[in-house]
């Protein structure tokens, strides 16, 4: 095989190989954070000390397999509790993950991201959401983060100073899928108590499932408060994407494969980028790269590539 032909074949195979590698990481992450198999076998949840550890991904702590705590649920639990109005523990943990990885966590580690990616593989015509609708809808996740996750649990409390987890209660489809459905299947008494709230949450889950079939990463784009939080760190996180504009041939292959519809050639470290690496894998001239910058504490670092 000639060198040129080999290069062409490698470039052609690269997106598939990359996606298989990413799927493997996503499956490993989902298995790791939901590794309590006994929970699925009997109708119970894990009660070990690792449950005090705040995970960096959206994964309901009431899932029978969950080994750690969901950050969004934990944030509301502490803020909505009688003792504290703000959770430094959860916010600090998320800030650390955010500054290190940005939304790489959404692209590689989040189990609900994996669910959406699998739904996106269902052969169906993918919808292009017009920019007039898409752009304002993307702000919805910030509103959900600010209002349902932070402000309401702090302010809308009962006479004992306690507030429900508004996002988990009224929106979170991960809780319905990972916690609600398994528990209702295994527990008859819980099934009998399911009412209007269950129907509402099931409706949200069905909407998100259908949305994810037709619009890649529907929940991440428009609704996820955790993605909204990490997106604040995307522009300066240690893990970052780079575009070498001197190599770029402006073929837009990267933008055509991006599940988050990011304008890669304009804003490669956009807050919307989940760092899935599809753009990098598909680039025919290797203009896109990703790396961990280890120069956080050093000055005068030469930068060859252009953001």
């Amino acid at each position: 095989m000639s060198g040129m032909h080999r290069d062409r074949v490698e470039t052609k195979d690269r997106p598939g190989l990359h996606e298989r590698f990413r799927l493997l990481i996503q499956l490993a992450s989902a298995a790791l954070v939901n590794g309590y198999a006994a929970g699925f076998a009997g109708c119970k949840i894990f009660t070990g000390t690792s449950k005090m550890v705040c995970l960096p991904v959206l994964n309901c702590y009431s899932c029978p397999g969950a080994l750690g705590a969901c950050p969004i649920g934990s944030l509301q639990a502490v803020e909505g509790g009688a003792k504290h109005n703000i959770s430094f523990y959860v916010l600090g943990t998320l800030m650390l993950f955010g500054v290190l990885f940005g939304r790489l966590i959404c692209g590689f580690l989040c189990p609900f991201g994996l669910v959406q990616d699998l739904l996106g593989r269902i052969p169906a015509r993918k919808l292009h959401v017009p920019e007039k609708i898409d752009k304002p809808l993307r702000y919805l996740k910030y509103v959900i983060l600010a209002v349902l996750v932070i402000l309401l649990p702090m302010l809308a409390v009962n006479q004992f100073g306690i507030a429900p987890p508004y996002f988990c209660k009224y929106i979170c489809p991960a809780g319905t899928l990972e916690g609600g459905i398994p528990h209702l299947l295994m527990n008859e008494s819980l099934r009998k108590t399911a009412g209007a709230l269950w129907n509402w949450k099931l409706g949200i889950l069905i909407l998100v499932i259908l949305g994810s079939v037709f619009v890649p990463r529907f929940f991440c784009r428009y609704l996820c408060p955790l993605g909204a939080f990490y997106s604040l760190f995307n522009r300066f996180s240690l893990f970052r994407m780079d575009l070498d504009k001197s190599k770029c041939v402006d073929c837009k292959s990267c933008e055509n494969v991006c599940p988050m519809a990011v304008k890669v050639t304009e804003h490669i470290n956009s807050p919307e980028c989940i760092r899935c690496g599809k753009c990098k894998a598909v680039c025919p001239v290797d203009a896109i790269s990703s790396r961990f910058e280890t120069d956080m504490l050093t000055r005068n670092v030469a930068v060859k590539k252009v953001d």
């Binding site: 894990f46 009660t47 702590y61 988990c168 809780g175 709230l197």
Partner: peptide, 10 residues
């Protein structure tokens, strides 16, 4: 996290 959150599961 060690109790089933009934609100979270709907």
């Amino acid at each position: 996290a060690v109790r089933i959150c009934l609100e979270c599961i709907g």
